[in-house]
Amino acid sequence: MSTTLNAPPLPARAAKGLVLLICCAVVILPFVSVVSTSLATREQVTRSGGLVLIPDEISFAAYDAILSGGVVTRAMLVSLFVTFGGTALSLISTALLAYGLSRLGSFGHRPLLMIVLFALLFTPGIIPSYLVVKSLGLVDSYWSLALPVMINAFNVIILRAFFMELPEEIIDSARIDGAGDVAILWRIVLPLSKGVLAVIALFYGVGYWNAFFAALLYLNDFSMWPLQLVLRTYVVNQTQLGVDQLGVSGQALPPQESLQMAILVLSIIPILLVYPFVQRHFTKGVLIGAVKG
Rank of each mutant, 00 (worst) to 15 (best):
S102M: 05
A95I: 02
P111M: 07
L120A: 14
G105V: 07
L113K: 08
I115M: 14
G105Y: 11
R103S: 08
L131P: 07
L138C: 01
P148M: 07
A88L: 15
P124C: 05
L145I: 12
T94Q: 03
G108N: 10
L131E: 10
L117G: 00
G105I: 05
L104Q: 11
L113G: 01
S90V: 06
P124I: 03
L97E: 04
P111K: 10
L96N: 00
F118Q: 07
L91M: 13
G100Q: 09
A98Y: 01
V82G: 02
G137R: 06
F107S: 06
R110W: 13
G85C: 11
L120T: 08
G86T: 05
Y99T: 02
A88D: 00
A98P: 09
S106L: 05
L113I: 00
S90T: 03
T83Y: 01
V132E: 02
G86S: 09
W143C: 02
L120E: 04
H109R: 14
S90R: 05
G100T: 08
G100E: 04
L131N: 12
P148K: 04
K134F: 05
S93Q: 08
R103P: 06
G86A: 11
L112N: 13
I126E: 11
Y130I: 03
S106F: 13
G100Y: 09
G108C: 10
T87A: 01
S129M: 12
L147H: 12
I126R: 12
P128E: 03
I126S: 12
L104I: 09
L91V: 14
L89M: 15
T87K: 04
S144K: 05
A95N: 01
A88V: 15
V139F: 00
F84P: 02
S90G: 10
I126C: 04
I92Y: 11
L96C: 10
G86I: 02
F122G: 08
L91F: 11
A88W: 13
S102C: 08
H109Q: 15
P128W: 11
G125N: 10
I126N: 06
G85S: 13
P111A: 08
S141N: 15
L120Q: 14
H109A: 12
K134D: 00
V132F: 11
S102Q: 06
L136I: 05
S135G: 14
G125F: 13
L89R: 08
F84E: 02
H109N: 15
Y130G: 02
F118W: 13
L101G: 03
F118I: 13
Y99I: 02
F122K: 09
L96F: 12
F107I: 12
L113V: 00
L91R: 03
I126F: 14
T94Y: 02
G105S: 05
F122M: 13
P111H: 10
W143D: 01
I127E: 06
L131H: 07
K134A: 04
L147I: 15
G85Y: 04
G100A: 12
P128N: 09
R110M: 13
I92L: 15
S102G: 15
L104S: 11
L147Q: 09
A146N: 10
G105F: 10
S129R: 09
A146I: 15
P128V: 07
I126H: 12
Y99K: 03
R103A: 08
V116L: 09
L121N: 06
L101W: 02
L104H: 11
S90Y: 04
L131Q: 15
L89Y: 10
P124V: 07
S135M: 06
L104Y: 13
L147R: 13
S106M: 08
G86W: 03
